[in-house]
Each structure stands twice: as structure tokens, then as C-alpha cells.
């Protein structure tokens, strides 16, 4: 009887304790939750680049994809663009694709930006803002590293501060 009481009390306290711990943990981590989380399948999309070519994400399965979201008025985006472009040129033979998605600015603005920075890699334009909605984009820039299986390997929030970071990223997603 006495043992039984101790058991019941222990069980109730454990259940309550677990609920409290879960709540606290969830409260601490609630700001870090990415909509497209690491390990999950990266949502598929179809976008046209500034040369009129269509890109479907699932077509790149088997390759690693570095998916960057940016805008012309975002200073860190402007700084990191050349690093990605350079690595794009160096890795053209490899099974890696670099895609930069503009968040839907006008063609005039995007083209001028491409010209100014002499960018050669595919710049897609999310005119209808559907892709950024699906990916839950808030602050720019943000870069998703997608493995050959189409799953998100890593998410890099904020600026890519030097070329080495891009090199490391490519290593992470190379098949």
C-alpha cells in the first residue's frame, strides 16, 4: 500500500516534470525553428532565370544544390554574390549547382545588378513570391544546402563572409 502510493506519486511527478521540461525546451528553441528544417526534403519549385531558362529543383537530384535567397537592396547579399559566382565557375564540372533566388524584384533592377557585378551563375526570380513563402524566408540573405538526395543538409542564415565558406559548403553537398 505504502509502496503503491510512492509509485503513484513518482509517476505523477514524472509526468508533470516531463511536461514542464518540454514546455521550457520548446520555449527556448521556438525562435530557431526553420520552416524548411535540416534533414527534411527541400520543397520543389520551378523558376525562370534571367536568361529565360527554367530551373526545377527536382531536376538537380543527384547533384548538390546551394540555394541562396537575396535582394538587390540587401548589402550582405551584395557582398557575398561574387564568392558564389567564383565558386560556380570553378565547380562547373562538378555535380554541384549554385542557384540564387531573387525575392521578386523587377527585371530592370535585377539585370542591372547582374551587369554591375558581372554575375554568370543562374539568377532566378521569384516574381510571385511563392517559393520564398514555401521556404518561410524572413531575413536575407539565407542559404540552403541541399544534398544529392534532395534533403536539406544545412541552413546558413546571414552573410557568407568569405570564399572559404562557399568552398566548405560545396564540400558538404558534393555527392
Amino acid at each position: 500500500m505504502k509502496k503503491q502510493r510512492l509509485l503513484i506519486r513518482t509517476v505523477i511527478l514524472l509526468v508533470l516534470g516531463a511536461a514542464v521540461v518540454y514546455t521550457l525546451y520548446a520555449n527556448f528553441t521556438k525562435d530557431d525553428i526553420q520552416k524548411v528544417a535540416v534533414g527534411k526534403k527541400a520543397p520543389d519549385f520551378v523558376l525562370t532565370d534571367m536568361n529565360g531558362e527554367q530551373h526545377r529543383l527536382s531536376d538537380y537530384e543527384g547533384k548538390g544544390v546551394l540555394l541562396n535567397f537575396w535582394a538587390t537592396w540587401c548589402k550582405p547579399c551584395e557582398r557575398e554574390m561574387p564568392y558564389m559566382d567564383k565558386q560556380y565557375q570553378e565547380n562547373q564540372e562538378e555535380d554541384v549547382q549554385i542557384l540564387a533566388v531573387n525575392i521578386g524584384e523587377s527585371n530592370v533592377v535585377v539585370n542591372e545588378f547582374i551587369k554591375k557585378h558581372d554575375l554568370t551563375f543562374p539568377i532566378l526570380n521569384d516574381k510571385k513570391q511563392e517559393v520564398q513563402t514555401v521556404y518561410g524566408i524572413g531575413n536575407l540573405p539565407i542559404t540552403f544546402l541541399i544534398g544529392p538526395d534532395g534533403n536539406v543538409v544545412n541552413v546558413h542564415e546571414g552573410e557568407i563572409i568569405n570564399e572559404q565558406v562557399v568552398i566548405d559548403m560545396i564540400k558538404e553537398i558534393k555527392p
Binding site: T72, W73, S106, E112
Partner: peptide, 22 residues
């Protein structure tokens, strides 16, 4: 011909025209 477009125009620190947002 539209050569440049700044939807939310301002001059930046170095005096070049830029845009603050889209």
C-alpha cells in the same frame, strides 16, 4: 530606356543612388 531603377531611392554613404527596399 530605363537604365537604372530605384524603387525606394536614397543616396548611400558613398553618394551613390541606391534603394532601401523593393
Amino acid at each position: 530606356e530605363v537604365m537604372s531603377y530605384f524603387p525606394d531611392f536614397e543616396f548611400n554613404e558613398s553618394g551613390e543612388p541606391t534603394t532601401k527596399s523593393r
